[in-house]
Amino acid sequence: MMRFNVLGIGWVTAANCGRGADALEFAFAGGPLPKLDHHALFGTAFPRFGRLDAYTRLGLAGIALALRDAGLDSWTEKRPLGLVASTESGCLETDLQYFQSVLPDNGRFASPNLFAYTLPSCMLGEASIHFGLTGPAFVVQEGGGDVLAGLKTALGMLSSGLCSTVVAGVCNAPAPPVALAFTSPPGAVFFVIECAEEGPLSLCEDAILWRGQPQLSIESLIRSIRTSGYPS
């Protein structure tokens, strides 16, 4: 069975923005997500950040915090790190906004800027550009809103040798105003994970294990990681 190390954790939830190394408690919570300040998140100006859609901003923030926690946020040469995110609602809000630009006058005023962000994987494309990441990048959409789906897929990807280090997690923007029942809480949580022979993280028949113990939620995984010595 392949084993892995966790090098970094970053999150944005309604409770707070945090990193694995912080003393902040991790929790999903109800209510609005915190305002995201690009200077605080990226350390430098990111002028386009405010113009990105909410889903992309949220995912970028989670990835930025995880990479900073791992000490991998600054770079001079591109690196072969992978990016995997699961999502339930994805860019549905942008889809709805874009199609509102199509409806008047049979599409004559369709917005190219909005259309470019109607693919959920474009959030990962932005992260790959900003952080110079050239590994595999894709979004996982799995029924039931399993917030661990991206992490499981990423561990499988590491096991099968598609890359050796990956930033993986989950990203769900607040639900758009449509009559849909989303099971996933809003927020973004990302982990930086590398292959390591004696690492404490493993995947066994679609179950995520930390030191051999099954982890059924992101909350329990983060708690286990932090209580047994972090970084691993």
Binding site: G90, L119, P120, S121, C122, G125, P136, A137, F138, V139, V140, Q141, E142, G143, A149, K152, T153, G156, M157, S159, S160, G161, L162, D206
Partner: peptide
Amino acid sequence: GRAWNASAACASGTVALACAAAAIAA
């Protein structure tokens, strides 16, 4: 078994095949 959709823009199909083939090979 597990069932998920791979979204990687116009490379989605090739990414899905790569993930599936890599999982079988491993």
